[in-house]
């Protein structure tokens, strides 16, 4: 596998390396990547933090009753996520609002910054999204057991189903519960990775097609628009699924 890729790269010809954009590089020098090494991951996460500071701290420093443009953007995010948390998880779940807001803003900013040319998309890495999803999974499980004790397990026992079916459904529910972090993380990472790789593949076509490269360039413009939508929607989906999972832990049983 590895040798095949290398040979292909050495051949020249139609040089498409859609995966190269996901390589983690040290920012300074060429040394090995230790856990503490500042890499392009650090850089782009840092940029996301700076943008967050700009929108949420710098723009709101006047605390204007009549908001400035950026302040109303921050208020828009606040209202959007707050309403989502309160609608889905109920009043009890509103305590988790800062946590969910952090998740949403991180994913949203990372997705959007990843769409800048030459940038690095941290959310396209399964390692990153898996940590996010595992955090949600652990939070939901711990909070559920803390608040409901063993009663939390009753969500696997579908009391509205016929008695015969209940053990079968319980097995399915348990499996789907443990599959949640997997689908939760791969949905985000996979969507982002696939979109960016497709753009890169089309860019490779454009490089090889001469005058006809107008066609892939137009296609890239279209896909780019779609990716903007995907970036926002995936952040939304990740967040709302977090809220849905949290409802199991804090809300009243809805089965």
């Amino acid at each position: 596998m590895a040798t095949g890729t290398e040979e292909h790269a050495a051949e020249g010809g139609l040089a498409i390396h859609p995966m190269d954009q996901f390589i983690v590089k040290p920012l300074f020098g060429d040394g090995p990547v230790h856990w503490y090494t500042p890499t392009n991951v650090t850089l782009w996460m840092g940029i996301a933090v700076v943008v967050l500071l700009g929108i949420f701290v710098l723009a709101t420093r006047h605390r204007g009753i009549i908001p400035s443009r950026l302040q109303s953007v921050a208020e828009l995010f606040y209202g959007f996520i707050y309403n989502m948390v309160e609608d889905v998880t109920g009043h009890e779940g509103a305590k988790f609002f800062p946590y969910i807001m952090t998740l949403f803003m991180f994913i949203f900013l990372a997705n959007m910054l990843g769409l800048l040319p030459m940038s690095f998309t941290v959310t396209s890495h399964i390692a990153v999204t898996a940590v996010l999803a595992l955090m949600v999974f652990l939070t939901v499980t711990l909070v559920g057991f803390y608040r409901k004790g063993l009663g939390f397990l009753s969500m696997f026992w579908v009391s509205s189903a016929p008695l015969v079916l209940r053990p079968v459904l319980a097995v399915i529910e348990v499996i789907s519960y443990f599959v949640r972090p997997l689908s939760h993380s791969i949905r985000l990472g996979g969507n982002l990775m696939a979109g960016h790789a497709v753009i890169k593949v089309f860019a490779g076509f454009a490089g090889a097609m001469g005058i006809a490269s107008v066609v892939p360039i137009i296609a890239i413009a279209g896909i780019y628009g779609l990716e903007l939508l995907v970036a926002a929607v995936q952040a939304y989906v990740f967040t709302i699924l977090t809220c849905v999972y949290l409802r199991d832990a804090v809300g009243e049983a809805h089965h």
């Binding site: 590895a2 890729t5 290398e6 790269a9 050495a10 390396h17 995966m19 190269d20 996901f22 390589i23």
Partner: peptide, 11 residues
């Protein structure tokens, strides 16, 4: 790899 390209999936 030696050319700075990715081997397999960087993820």
């Amino acid at each position: 790899n030696a050319h700075g390209g990715a081997i397999g999936m960087p993820q």
